[in-house]
Computed example of a mutant assay.
Amino acid sequence: MSALRDNGFRFWTEEKLRNADTDQFRHVNNASIATLFEAARMEIFAPPQIHALMNGANLAVVRLLIEFDAELHFPGRVRVGSAVVEVGNTSFKVRQGLFDERQGTGCATAEAVCVLLHGETGRSYPIAPELRAYLLSDDAMEALA
């Protein structure tokens, strides 16, 4: 996806790159990029209001696809945009883009399928209508109000 653009993402996270994220060529390595995407997915669930909507459930990633479009170098900062593009009964799909703030370019895309799991039983757990509305809202914070 060489034409990665930052439009269409509803949730945004900024991260500082660390020297520990790099390989011997000072490229940010693929495991660190996966971690940056994970941090951004978890930001979707950071507002305290949604803990009640999750009713003690946890998230599990059951599928993760990452496409690397351009090299990313230390030092620097990145922005990760995320959008929930589908919500099922117990799972949802998140589309993400990672952007180098210094270069203003897209570096990687990800697609994750996440399942909501009951905190005690570990079994899939239904997504409440209010959580669904939050995940799919164009203005997520307004959906919480």
Rank of each mutant, 00 (worst) to 15 (best):
R10T: 14
R41Q: 05
V87H: 09
A52Y: 01
L17C: 08
V87W: 03
A112D: 10
D138W: 04
R18S: 05
D139Y: 02
G104V: 01
A143G: 10
E14A: 11
A46P: 06
S2V: 09
R18I: 05
E67R: 11
L17H: 06
T13Y: 03
V80N: 01
C107G: 07
S2G: 15
A145Y: 08
V62T: 14
E120P: 04
V113A: 04
M1K: 02
I44M: 12
L53M: 14
Y134G: 00
H118P: 03
Q49H: 12
E120M: 08
S82W: 01
E86F: 09
R79K: 10
G119I: 11
A46G: 06
D69F: 10
L144G: 05
L116E: 10
V84N: 08
S137E: 10
T109Y: 00
E43L: 06
V85D: 04
N19C: 14
N58C: 11
P129H: 09
A140L: 06
P126K: 07
V61F: 04
F45V: 04
G8S: 08
A34V: 11
N29R: 10
G76W: 03
R123I: 09
F45G: 01
V28F: 00
R5Y: 04
F92G: 07
L135P: 06
S137L: 05
R18T: 05
G76A: 00
E43V: 06
C114E: 15
G122L: 08
G81P: 01
R102N: 13
S2F: 12
A60Q: 11
K16L: 13
R41K: 00
C107Y: 06
E38R: 09
V85R: 09
L53H: 06
I50M: 00
R5T: 15
E67G: 12
F9I: 00
G81K: 03
E130V: 05
C114M: 15
L36R: 00
V113T: 14
G76C: 00
V87G: 00
F74I: 08
A39G: 07
G56N: 11
P126D: 10
I66R: 01
M1S: 15
V80D: 02
L117V: 15
V85I: 15
A83K: 08
D21W: 06
D139W: 02
A112R: 00
V84H: 00
E111N: 09
G8C: 04
A70H: 11
F92P: 00
L116K: 03
D21T: 09
W12G: 04
K93Y: 05
T13Q: 11
R102V: 15
V113S: 07
R77E: 14
E67M: 07
P47N: 05
D139S: 10
Q103R: 15
A140D: 03
M1N: 12
V61C: 08
F45M: 12
F92W: 10
L64Q: 13
D100Q: 08
A52F: 05
K93T: 15
I66S: 05
T105N: 10
M54E: 09
L64F: 02
L135A: 09
V84Q: 01
I50S: 04
I33Q: 12
D21H: 07
D69V: 14
Q103K: 14
I127D: 08
E101W: 02
F92Q: 01
